[in-house]
Design a protein around this nucleic acid. Sequence first.
DNA 1: TACTTATGTAAGTATGCACTTACTATCAAG
DNA 2: CTTGATAGTAAGTGCATACTTACATAAGTA
Lengths: 186, 186
Amino acid sequence: MHLLSSTEARLIEAALDLLGERGYKGATTREIAARAGVAEVTLFRRFGSKARLLAEAVRRAGAAFKEVAAHPSGDLRADLRTLAELYRGQLQRGGALVFVMASEAAREPELRRALGEALAGRLVTVAGFFKYYQAAGELRGGETAALIHAFFGPLIAASLFGVALERAPALDLEAHIEGFLRGWSA
Amino acid sequence: MHLLSSTEARLIEAALDLLGERGYKGATTREIAARAGVAEVTLFRRFGSKARLLAEAVRRAGAAFKEVAAHPSGDLRADLRTLAELYRGQLQRGGALVFVMASEAAREPELRRALGEALAGRLVTVAGFFKYYQAAGELRGGETAALIHAFFGPLIAASLFGVALERAPALDLEAHIEGFLRGWSA
DNA sequence: TACTTATGTAAGTATGCACTTACTATCAAG
DNA sequence: CTTGATAGTAAGTGCATACTTACATAAGTA
């Protein structure tokens, strides 16, 4: 995990942005390069191919998120709020499409693998987070999958609605957390 | 809304399938036609363009769903179960990508409009459904948006995880409904 | 100064895609 | 038995895209 040159960092930023706006096939190398303010050929010199650039971009995304989920503070409600805010920020940057790309880009094995690993890693971290609060007696026991779906699902849904509709119903974070806690507290 | 010829019906089926598997740009007219068992040129004769075919496909999808949501039975839990099952079935057929296409296909105004209308129509229907049970005193008052996100979000999340991962955590429908009712019952 | 490294410009290749055109085959209805 | 509708085959057009190659430039370093 070496540091990124500014050129590489700008390409990754631009790639993430465009991924969110247009999806995998819609994010063209020309446009990524233009948005990053570099020549298209530089993209290929640095990353070799579009698939590899996007795989890198996906790998880098979400480090802060894992950081929080890996270290529960003991204050469940506060942690949930932080996670929700972080996750929402990521979704706005196209994180939602991580999922979709997995199908859209199914033909690029390298990209698919990177996506799968990134997502799986996060899920494991998040599962550990919920298990911690289950063990602490604050959340009901049972499958952590149910907690993951219940907590992140509404965030994802709100983000997808926002992408698809002009006047999408907004998600009230406080209400969401309130409902989640009511539904799943021990 | 005239009836579909079998050719048209098969094209729409195939389009919906491939949309789910590959996304908008990934679903090529060649492959759609092949899966439908017709010549590619027939697709263009019938629908004029790829965008119009997909817009039609999206429009037709989900009639059964609206049917249920528009007529609450009075038994909230049973209705929720039916809706969840119907919705999950649709998501498996690529319904989740309806959202994503909206960004991926942002350049096709006709498709984007059809998607927006289809989605907006459903949201209105579903909002009405929840309002009915709020008025009946079974669900807490407040924004119906929160209920929509809380109920459908987890279904969407589970579907997206399933697309992206080989061994995705499954969603236990009963547990989901249970948690939802706990969290949002009056 | 000479060499290296990171970038740029410009042109081009190969491929895949949506969509078109021209012609043929089948079949049901009048 | 002709006509019209619906389908097919085959070939091709035009364009956008990922990726390549060749050459130039500027800056930093030995």
